[in-house]
Amino acid sequence: MSAPETNITPTAPAPTRSTAAIYDLGYKRYVGNRVAASARWRVIMRNQLSTAWKGWWRLKFPLGTALMISLVAGAVMYVSSNKLFNAIASKGMGLKFSDGIVPFSMTFFARAGFIFSLTVGASVIASDAQSGGFTFYFARPVRPIDYVLGKFAGLLLATSLIMMAGPLFLAAERLGLAETTSELIDLLPVLGKAAIAGLAGALLYAALPLGFSALANKRRTALALWAGAYLIAGSICSGIGLLTNTPLGALDPPTAITSLTFHLFDVEWKGRSAMVPMPYAIGAILMYVVIGLGLAWWRVNNSRSTGVGGAP
């Protein structure tokens, strides 16, 4: 039907298409199957990893640090593979320098893990609280358990790359440097020990910062809390433990990790930090993992039940 003719001269310009114009793009309602609710945590984990990978400072920098540690330690191990580590041997260890590199490197991997906790781990939940992320998640069919599990799994995978891949690489190199088959067979447990030490470190450096990130509504506050607890409270515990010869040093996360590693590799270390007995080291690591996950769970569940993402 044609429009009726008029003799009115238009005084205004013809209406242009607004930016709110509708683009249909063949829209059809989605009728396919939906992924089971129990798989939501994997989506969150993948997103945690992909956002951590963005930019140079979040995951790439600590990962690069871990890579550098691995390469330097690997080079040292290669060069000194046939020489005795006199410093340790003089303390009755009778240990090859190259054998000591794997456990000793864990102190450096722990530092890389701490860097990652500062760039990502200790701000995960606080960032979501600050940006309204809780509303984003819980306005969908996402349960608190999916959220905590997904975030933790993402952090654990990233931290494992930093704290487990390096020791495993060094352990593999040590196997490669074995001079005889029997030595190679004797050294095989090194792989398992490196994996256990790396996994323990990854668990600790994923769970505890996640828990600290649940303690604040602002990213910077959470980071400050974590850094303060790690650097100051941890050092105080370690120092008191060293001075009083008590296992209090186990409360210092790097001391707990290095103690566990040295015990696994039968290394007796008398350095600046205290070395605590194995049960205390394991106990402290487990306690920190439980505390970290518990704090995260408490915060997320509490925020959800009181009205997510803002004033109720």
Partner: peptide, 16 residues
């Protein structure tokens, strides 16, 4: 929440 969409008043945009 599978069948309902929610646009809240406050921000909910994840950074990065």
């Amino acid at each position: 929440r599978v069948r309902v969409g929610y646009m809240p008043e406050q921000d909910l945009l994840l950074p990065n």
